[in-house]
């Protein structure tokens, strides 16, 4: 079995929150950890990780070559790591042109897959990217959607295929032979001890209830937001106002028109139903 636990999600679905919780749990300090020093990085798609492991600069490689090499990068990283690794990832679970999983199964111990109501994802994603909601509706519904896809310039991350929102979810949760824990963002809010406790157990960490409660408290939205207000947060996009915006459930209701919501629901209906975001009458739950 591999050594990498992926902290996997579509963007804006609780990934940073989870990394903050896990960092607090690991370090077990008397005060909250600094959000600018979180574990769980670098992101799997970081260019430096690839370049160092391969020995060739990814910026001299074609996207097909990069895709073919990425599974070997994670294998190499896992083989050379004395202990388990926890890496953030936004890529969908896809295969290379050779049919090999991009996030090599041999390198993988498991994946914590975080899922959130796509309507709230949409609102948060639009805010985060400082883009109009309409554009992000298109992104969530686009089977070819990818991050940092421009061929004319170099970005500090590699291309990440996200697929549609539903495509992203299914790529992870239905991948045969992949050891996955699915956690809903909404459950992290409503019942943090169960949600985060499940992560601790899944990731093979020693379970301790006091430590769990403390780590939850130290990664509460208020703590994160006030740290950002005071010192800034490195993962905020340059054009957005803040990274930790509302952290609430159902804030789409104040931001989206009925038509906009319907456009997402009609594109993502089956997966929304399956994970409890639509009820039996197709009413939106959160």
């Amino acid at each position: 079995m591999g050594k990498i636990y992926w902290i996997a999600s579509y963007p804006k679905s609780g990934n940073t929150w989870t990394r903050t919780f896990l960092t607090n749990y690991w370090r077990n300090l008397d005060q909250p950890v600094d959000i600018n020093e979180l574990e769980g990085g670098p992101i799997a798609s970081a260019r430096e990780l690839f370049d160092e492991s391969v020995g060739i600069e990814s910026s001299d490689l074609t996207s097909a070559e990069i895709e073919r090499l990425r599974p070997r990068v994670y294998r190499e990283v896992a083989e050379n790591s004395p202990e388990n690794l926890y890496l953030k990832v936004h890529d969908a679970y896809t295969c290379t042109p050779d049919g090999i999983p991009l996030l090599s199964k041999e390198a993988t111990a498991g994946a914590i897959y975080l899922i959130r109501n796509p309507l709230d994802v949409l609102v948060s994603f639009a805010h985060h990217s400082a883009r109009p909601v309409e554009k992000m509706i298109h992104a969530l519904n686009d089977p070819n959607y990818a991050f940092v896809n421009s061929p004319n310039r170099m970005h500090n991350q590699l291309v990440q295929k996200l697929l549609t929102w539903s495509g992203h979810v299914l790529s992870w949760v239905d991948e045969p032979g992949l050891n996955v824990l699915v956690v809903r963002y909404e459950d992290m809010h409503r019942d943090p001890e169960s949600a985060f406790g499940a992560m601790v157990r899944f990731a093979g960490l020693d379970f301790d209830e006091d430590r769990l409660r403390k780590a939850i408290r130290f990664s509460s939205f208020d703590v994160l937001q006030s740290q950002e207000q005071e010192h800034g947060f490195g993962e905020k996009m340059p054009f957005s106002e803040s990274f930790f915006r509302k952290g609430k459930i159902g804030s789409w209701r104040e931001q989206l028109s009925d038509e906009q919501a319907a456009e997402i629901v009609s594109g993502q209906r089956a997966v929304m139903r399956r994970f409890g975001y639509l009820d039996e009458q197709d009413q939106i739950v959160f």
């Binding site: 391969v54 060739i56 090499l69 990068v73």
Partner: peptide, 17 residues
């Protein structure tokens, strides 16, 4: 030492793309 596409030892280095 070994990376994905290279191997090295004192005074020798091999890379294959």
């Amino acid at each position: 030492a070994k990376g994905v596409l290279y191997q090295a030892r004192p005074n020798q280095f091999l890379m294959r793309l």
